[in-house]
Write a protein that binds this DNA or RNA. Sequence first.
DNA 1: CCTACCGATCGGTAGG
DNA 2: CCTACCGATCGGTAGG
Lengths: 225, 225
Amino acid sequence: MARKRAPTFDDQRAAILNHAAGLFARQGYFATSMNDVARECGMSKPSLYHYYRDKYALLLSIVDGHVTRLVDLVRPASAVPAVPERQLERLVVTFLEAYADAQSSHRVLTEDVKFLKEEDAALVLQKQRLVVRAFANAITLVRPALRSAQLESIVTMLLFGMLNWMFTWVRPGGALTHSDLAPIVCELFLNGVTGMNLPPAKDTKSPTAQQSSAHKRTSRTAKSL
Amino acid sequence: MARKRAPTFDDQRAAILNHAAGLFARQGYFATSMNDVARECGMSKPSLYHYYRDKYALLLSIVDGHVTRLVDLVRPASAVPAVPERQLERLVVTFLEAYADAQSSHRVLTEDVKFLKEEDAALVLQKQRLVVRAFANAITLVRPALRSAQLESIVTMLLFGMLNWMFTWVRPGGALTHSDLAPIVCELFLNGVTGMNLPPAKDTKSPTAQQSSAHKRTSRTAKSL
DNA sequence: CCTACCGATCGGTAGG
DNA sequence: CCTACCGATCGGTAGG
């Protein structure tokens, strides 16, 4: 049997990051000690510090690495032209496939961003906005009237809610996978969006004064994402 | 100007809990020290310990208090009979109104349950299940075919995703409130659910073998909630 | 002399 | 009800 090649520096860094992501996701960032991480990686703490300067570097690498992967994944999926409905479906499928392989990282992204320094958080938020915009664009192509009703961002965030909430109830090893859920989410969302009662899409220069009564007060879109 | 009556023991406890919930929501449970809480409450640390035995008691009181409030809110909303669509809308509206007043508590509930002891987590989960079941029942009344397709739990959790994700993008002081969003969520979800392509509802004793192709692999509903 | 790593302990601070 | 302080454990790094 061939001896397994000694892991390189980069391999080790990747392995450590995976272990740390799992621990952070399960226990939270502050509840996880560097001793925990080292033990999980099967190395001493000083060895761990050889690969990462400090605990914060682990957090930042996990979060930034994951969101960067999402951006790189979503960009090509948006680039290839398709029927609007298929375009959006492809985005959802791509996104959920990424989830399946990176559940821990995604959980760290959504729960531990608050521990990032201002500057780092801004960087991550910027990349998240790219992902959100890709979805918002695809959604608007499916239902242009959403834009004039200023419901574009809101509806996009509702879709992200369905997707991002999955990590709380879809068990990693269970029979039900993220990919199984993609068509269900797509069908529910597409039916929901195309069925909404909205004023007809118009020239953006003359926004209609009469909106569906249900949406009167949602005159401003959310600024947070 | 009349002197403000000295706060009672119970008032103090409630005030402390509010401050603690705000801090836990903003900084996370472990990143918040008891000194932080004491300072926020304008009292010394020993005084704080006069009202709550330890840090964990704050967490448990926040989470259990909030989930108990949700159960008490959802129960009567389900009890009053109504057209299925209105029933579900009432649940959503009621739920989102509670959010508006308890954003911090809800965030603590969703992000810090993992720090609860096994036994306490079980208690909270049990109450959460009551809330989920109320929604699932209302949804099934709107679209009975979901049950035979075994999509009842899945679709319910997708709705909770839209609702629970709001705390990440709806700014507490912003122009857009949770109540504004209730009709939008309802319209999107009701249109989505009624428009889904499903096998017709049947006698539960003879589940149909032919399901919508998109749902073939979702033969088991999630067990986590 | 470098690297990769150990056992032991540093300065600070948490909950209490 | 505060000041002062404990046992423990944190993240990070010394010498060898």
